[in-house]
Design a protein around this nucleic acid. Structure first.
Length: 292
DNA sequence: TTCCAGGTACCCC
DNA sequence: GGGGTACATGGA
C-alpha cells in the first residue's frame, strides 16, 4: 500500500477539516483517520500530533503515491497556505474570533471540484448534514462509477454532468432529494450547455468574486448562501462569507447583528479577504458548542 | 406530534 | 427591493 508521510505539519486536524460542513464524502474511521474519494481517487488521511505546544505533527496519507500527492492532494488539502498567519490576523482585537480559532485551529478550506460542490450545496439547502451526506452517497452509488474498494468498502466517483443531465424524476427518486431533484438535472444541463470550462474558469483569480457570484446564481436553486459556499470551497474566492442559520446565530449571539445586510457589511469590514476562513471558524465553533 | 435543517423560488406590495 | 410562504424529507 502506497503511503506519503509529511512531517512538521501544523494546523491540520482531520476532525476539523473533514467535519466542518465543507465536504460531505469523508468518513471517519474508528482510529480517527478519514477515508474519502476525490476525483476518483480514494485516500485515507491521518494526523499524529507530535508536539503539544505547537500542535505540530505528521500527516499520513495512505493509498496515495508520491506523484498523486504532489500533483493532486497537496493542492486539494491546501497545504501550501500559512494558516497561522490567517489566524493571527483574524484573532487580533477580536475575542470572539480568538475563542473560535482556539476551538477550530485545525480547520483548512479544501480546494474542491466546482461541479461536485455545486451539486452538493444544491442538496444542502434546507437540509440536515447527515441527510445531505446520505443523499450524496446514494447519488454516487447510483450514477457514479465504481472506483475500487478500500478497507472492505466500495467507493464510487461523483457522477459527471453527462450522467445527471438525462435523468428523470423517477431515476432520481431513490436519492430522496425531495423538491431539489429538478435543480440537479437543470444544473447538469446548464453546465453542458455553457461548456464545463465556463464553471471551472470561475476559479481564475482575474475573475472577481462578484462576477463569479452572478454566474453561479444563474443556476436554478442557487441563492446567495449556496453561491458563496461554491465560491469559497471550490473557486478560491476566500473573501466570501456564506450566511446560514448557524452563522446567523453566532453573529446575533456574539456580535449583536440581526439582518443579512448588517452581517455582510460587518464581515467585509472586519474580516476582509479572510472572510471565508473567519466564517469557517465561527461555523464550527457555534455548531460544535451547541451539539452537546 | 411538531419542529427543524449549511435556503430558494415565487408571489405580492 | 423588502416581506411572507411553500417546498420534500427524515431525524430529534
Amino acid at each position: 500500500m502506497s503511503q506519503v508521510i509529511l512531517k512538521h505539519v501544523r494546523d491540520f486536524l482531520p476532525d476539523h477539516v473533514f467535519d466542518c460542513g465543507q465536504a460531505f464524502r469523508w468518513q471517519r474511521e474508528e482510529d480517527g483517520s478519514y477515508t474519502g474519494i476525490v476525483g476518483g481517487r480514494i485516500a485515507n488521511i491521518r494526523f499524529d500530533q507530535q508536539e503539544e505546544n505547537t500542535g505540530e505533527g505528521q500527516l499520513v496519507l495512505s493509498n496515495v503515491s508520491e506523484s498523486e500527492f504532489s500533483e493532486f492532494w497537496k493542492h486539494y488539502l491546501d497545504l501550501d497556505r500559512d494558516y497561522r498567519e490567517i489566524q493571527n490576523v483574524l484573532a487580533q482585537e477580536d475575542p470572539v474570533m480568538k475563542a473560535a480559532i482556539a476551538f477550530g485551529r485545525g480547520i483548512r478550506i479544501l480546494r474542491q471540484d466546482p461541479w461536485e460542490t455545486l451539486i452538493s450545496f444544491l442538496i444542502s439547502q434546507n437540509n440536515h448534514i447527515p441527510r445531505i451526506r446520505k443523499c450524496i452517497e446514494t447519488l454516487c452509488e447510483c450514477f457514479g462509477k465504481p472506483a475500487g474498494t478500500y478497507r472492505g468498502r466500495a467507493f464510487y466517483s461523483f457522477p459527471e454532468p453527462e450522467a445527471l443531465s438525462e435523468l428523470t424524476a423517477e431515476d432520481l427518486a431513490v436519492c430522496r432529494l425531495g423538491y431539489r431533484e429538478q435543480y440537479l438535472v437543470k444544473a447538469a444541463r446548464k453546465v453542458l450547455e455553457d461548456g464545463p470550462r465556463r464553471l471551472r474558469g470561475m476559479s481564475d483569480p482575474e475573475i472577481s468574486g462578484e462576477e463569479a457570484f452572478s454566474y453561479i446564481t444563474e443556476f436554478c436553486g442557487v441563492g446567495p448562501k449556496v453561491a458563496n459556499c461554491i465560491l469559497l470551497f471550490s473557486l478560491g474566492k476566500y473573501d466570501r462569507f456564506p450566511v446560514d442559520v448557524w452563522v446567523k446565530k453566532v453573529m446575533k449571539n456574539y456580535y449583536g447583528l440581526e439582518t443579512p445586510k448588517e452581517i455582510a457589511a460587518f464581515a467585509k469590514k472586519k474580516f476582509g479577504r479572510y472572510g471565508g476562513f473567519a466564517q469557517q471558524y465561527l461555523f464550527y465553533y457555534i455548531r460544535e458548542s451547541e451539539q452537546e
